[in-house]
């Protein structure tokens, strides 16, 4: 449904994009200043560019080591979430069984839990499983907590597409696994992208569970490294901001990559009403 004269649309889109982009550019420009420059003249362009901020942040924040840990945690939990939540969503959306709504609400409920409340029982559970100070503990927690949003979104999405294709496939004698794999998964790919992206970002930026469940400083994730520049009384913005820029880049690439997938699917027009 493209408009014939999209000039106004473009203007509005650009205006909103500026509101988003300007503060972000400011953030990048700040990351090249020294501390007095950041606090004293926050909006001006840097007079002198401090590349050293980046070098110091990289080594002091131990970002190299942490990036590997974070990549493992994020990629694995996203993979687990996508696989498990799409299967569950298919079952909930397409089959009538007792407890269907209850399970669905149960997943939704996870979005409303204050995580601090469940920290102690989780810690004890991980201790019993002998997983403390092991990245697997964080992966398990992220995978489990990511399930809420993903199941919720995917169920809604599956419900909003008509059953015709599946029904005819089933009539042709295809099995449910075949239907799930060949019809449902391609159908919900755009939503899967959203799910993947969102869980990737929250795993990437997560701070609380790595701090609680891991204790060896070598096992920490990037968020811990970035926020280590926040002290009790003073924050080293000249190191925090560059480390933040470094840490944001991978997420941005993931997004650009994912959104390409997403758009390609939408335009392929394989599934339309």
């Amino acid at each position: 449904m493209q408009a014939k004269r999209p000039v106004i649309s473009y203007l509005l889109l650009i205006l909103c994009a500026l509101v988003i982009v300007l503060p972000l550019l400011d953030l990048v420009s700040l990351s090249f200043k020294d501390l007095p420059g950041i606090v004293g003249h926050p909006f001006s362009l840097p007079e002198k560019i401090y590349w050293s901020n980046y070098a110091t942040a990289w080594s002091d924040g131990r970002l190299g080591r942490f990036l590997i840990n974070t990549a493992i945690v994020s990629v694995v939990s996203v993979a687990v979430i996508i696989l498990f939540s799409s299967m569950a969503a298919y079952a909930i959306a397409r089959f009538q069984f007792i407890g269907n709504q209850l399970i669905y609400l149960g997943f939704l409920a996870g979005l409303a839990l204050p995580i601090q409340m469940i920290a102690v029982p989780l810690f004890i559970l991980m201790r019993q499983l002998n997983l403390l100070d092991n990245l697997i503990s964080v992966i398990l927690v992220y995978s489990a907590s990511g399930m809420s949003f993903s199941v919720f979104l995917l169920v809604n999405f599956i419900r909003s597409v008509p059953k015709d294709i599946e029904d005819s496939a089933l009539i042709d004698g295809a099995g449910y696994f075949h239907v799930f794999y060949r019809i449902i998964l391609p159908l919900i790919r755009p939503s899967l992208t959203t799910v993947a992206l969102l869980n990737f970002v929250s795993a990437w930026n997560g701070l609380f569970f790595p701090l609680v469940l891991l204790s060896n400083p070598d096992h920490m994730t990037v968020a811990v490294g970035v926020l280590s520049f926040i002290g009790q009384y003073a924050t080293q913005w000249n190191l925090l901001l560059p480390s933040l820029v470094i840490v944001m880049l991978p997420t941005l690439f993931v997004f650009i990559f994912a959104s390409r997938q997403f758009i390609r699917n939408m335009t392929a027009g394989a599934v339309k009403l």
Binding site: Q116, A119, V120, F123, I124, R127, L132, L207, F208, L211, V212, S215, P217, V224, L227, S228, I230, G231, Q232
Partner: peptide
């Protein structure tokens, strides 16, 4: 030695102590 960001220190310590580690 392990330092934990001041705003998270109390809850991290509390969890670990309650959890027996």
């Amino acid at each position: 030695f392990r330092s934990i960001q001041a705003t998270n220190y109390d809850s991290v310590l509390q969890t670990a102590m309650d959890g027996g580690q």
